[in-house]
Design a protein around this nucleic acid. Structure first.
Lengths: 216, 216
DNA sequence: TCTTGTGAAAACGTTCACAGCA
DNA sequence: TGCTGTGAACGTTTTCACAAGA
């Protein structure tokens, strides 16, 4: 069955929350309580969880350890993904050491950059290659996922260089630019300035709504 | 009229694209061409643009300078927002210098951290205060928007300290934690590890689909 | 003829409301 | 009685299909 993207997003949040609750020694939790914690309707929580079988107990709620394990299983990868980061600038560098991204689900096996000062060095255990060598290195090291933290102008050229080989299956794109990829490659965009623009747009809207004598 | 969030997101992408096209000296563009560039259906592009009046020419397309100006006007804020960043760690530091966030739509007027080595200093023109002083400083400097780049555990406590005063109207939350805010405050979450988890989830799904003899 | 603008239809996601079970 | 699981209703967003205009 196909699981909708908003559902997957919430599943990650449930998994995080349940892990915390388990550490706190909570035994049982209701869909209502989960919803309160995460700002969701109880019915939403129940529907999301029901896609993966009956896991709660009617009249009682969800066993925290059981639901936690269940969610881990749903979100656990089939194996450890081999991933690489392209662009070890300010943002890339920050993400390399970013706690929430230190994860047992993948192994950072290579870095790529154009800066001669970085190429040849090793950062947090991952060797840095020149981007010009990306096609070869991706094949040699069997890299499956790329984290793209290059400037907008460079994003598409990186994609083009790895698109022909069928090693890369997914890209997490931080570049503020849309990238065109073959449909075999799955792309998620994290576009920081788009999020900020959206926030400012709706703040503007709210402001003009509350302002008197302005019709829009 | 209320504009749907997915529409606003695409408007930002249109604005970016049109700006580039204008610099390249392109004169006219069709909804089909815009769609091809951004991976959207032409009908989607037309519907989005039509919410703000008839801007194209039938049989011809959209005038690039005209559409560009139109989009700027839609997305332009009523004034320069006064914003602050809470948490000048690895990620916060990277965002401070991040090109796409150097923006004439807002001014970074303050930073907050708990690290004594940072408090009292100035980074990129913005003075850094101790987080304990946030309630006062937000009021003094009339800060309207916060960028939250603190650890997950600290996010809610920051919010609680500024929630009572009605200065802060929006928060861009990078902490991998849900935050509870009064409904007057608008929150956008940028949760990097959630995006990566979603990518890995769907990669897993694709893999198990193509694998033979596995029914799921 | 070509491309926009737009109602209507379809697809998608959320919420409701209640049956079913502890 | 209380809370889950779920079909049906609802609301939202996307896509279609075509009339209207350059």
């Amino acid at each position: 069955m196909r699981i909708a993207e908003p559902t997957v997003e919430r599943l990650v949040l449930y998994a995080r929350l349940l892990k915390r609750l388990q550490e706190e020694g909570v035994d049982v939790i209701s869909s209502q309580e989960i919803g309160d914690e995460l700002g969701l309707k109880a019915s939403q929580v129940r529907k999301d969880l029901s896609y993966f079988g009956e896991i709660g107990k009617r009249g009682v709620g969800y066993s925290v350890p059981r639901l936690c394990e269940h969610l881990q299983a749903i979100l656990s990868p089939p194996r450890v993904w081999r991933i690489a980061m392209v662009g070890v600038g300010r943002l890339g560098g920050a993400l390399l050491g970013y706690g929430p991204l230190q994860n047992e689900k993948f192994k950072m096996v290579a870095l790529f950059d154009v800066d001669p000062a970085k190429v040849g060095r090793t950062f947090r255990g991952a060797p840095c290659f020149h981007v010009d060598r990306i096609a070869d290195v991706v094949a040699e090291l069997a890299i499956e996922v790329l984290i793209l933290t290059v400037p907008a102008e460079a994003a598409q050229s990186v994609v083009d260089r790895i698109a022909s080989s069928s090693f890369v299956k997914g890209i997490l794109n931080f570049a503020p630019a849309p990238i065109v990829v073959p449909k075999e490659i799955l792309v998620y965009n994290v576009d920081i300035s788009v999020e900020l623009e959206k926030l400012l747009f709706y703040l503007k809207q709210r402001e003009s709504q509350s302002a008197p004598f302005v019709l829009e």
